[in-house]
C-alpha cells in the first residue's frame, strides 16, 4: 500500500484545504456532555484558570448538531452507551472524539471480574481520536489533548512539544 504512487489530482486545493483545516482546528466546539468525575475537570478546564477559550475551544454547545468534538468524560455504563452512540451519530461531520480519563479509555477502576454495568472503554463503540489518561486527568492534560487533536487535523503542532524530564 505504502509504496504505490497515488496520482495527484489535476486541480489542487492545498491552500484551501490547509485553510479549512486551520479553521477547524482552531474552532473545536465541545459538546456539553459530562458523565462523571472527569466532567468536573472538563468544566475546570473551561473556567477561569485554564481557559480553554484561548484556543477557541471554549464554546461548549449543548446541542450535538452544533459541536465538533465529543469529550467522553467519565464512566460509560451499559445503560448510557446507546445514548452516547446516538449523540455521536447526531453530530455533523467532521467530528472527533476525545476519551477523557481512565474510565473512558478502558473502564478504569470499575473493571473487575464479574462486572455487570459498564462498557470498558469508549473505543468499544466510538472512533476515539485522542486518549487522555488520568483519574481524573488534570486540566492541563485536557488542553494537551486538544492540542494533540489540532495537530491531528492540521499536521503541525501549535507549540513545540515539551519533553519529559
Amino acid at each position: 500500500m505504502g509504496t504505490e504512487s497515488i496520482q495527484s489530482p489535476i486541480v489542487q486545493f492545498v491552500a484551501l484545504d490547509k485553510l479549512i483545516a486551520m479553521g477547524r482546528a482552531n474552532s473545536l466546539w465541545p459538546l456539553t456532555f459530562g458523565l462523571a468525575c472527569c466532567a468536573i475537570e472538563m468544566m475546570a478546564t473551561g473556567c477561569a484558570r485554564f481557559d480553554l477559550d484561548r484556543f477557541g475551544a471554549g464554546v461548549f454547545r449543548p446541542a450535538p448538531k452544533q459541536s465538533d468534538v465529543m469529550i467522553v468524560a467519565g464512566t460509560i455504563s451499559k445503560k448510557m452507551a446507546p445514548a452516547i452512540q446516538t449523540l455521536y451519530e447526531q453530530m455533523p461531520h467532521p467530528k472527533w472524539v476525545i476519551a477523557l480519563g481512565n474510565c473512558a479509555i478502558s473502564g478504569g477502576p470499575f473493571v473487575f471480574e464479574g462486572q455487570y454495568g459498564i462498557v470498558e472503554g469508549a473505543d468499544k463503540f466510538l472512533p476515539v481520536d485522542v486518549f487522555i489518561p488520568g483519574c481524573p486527568p488534570r486540566p492541563e492534560a485536557l488542553i494537551e489533548g486538544i492540542l494533540e487533536l489540532e495537530e491531528k487535523i492540521t499536521g503541525s503542532r501549535r507549540w513545540p512539544r515539551v519533553e519529559a524530564g
Binding site: 485553510l19 479549512i20 486551520m22 479553521g23 477547524r24 482552531n26 474552532s27 473556567c47 477561569a48 484558570r49 481557559d51 477559550d53 484561548r54 484556543f55 477557541g56 471554549g58 464554546v59 465538533d68 455533523p92 461531520h93 467532521p94 501549535r158
Partner: peptide
C-alpha cells in the same frame, strides 16, 4: 480570564476560524 488569544493577535481571527469551520460543516 482572557478569552480567545491564540488565533491571530488577541484572538482577532477567532471568528474567521469559526466561520470557516461552520461553512465546511456537514
Amino acid at each position: 480570564r482572557i478569552g480567545p488569544k491564540e488565533v491571530g493577535p488577541f484572538g482577532i481571527l477567532q471568528s474567521f476560524a469559526d466561520g470557516i469551520k461552520l461553512m465546511t460543516k456537514q
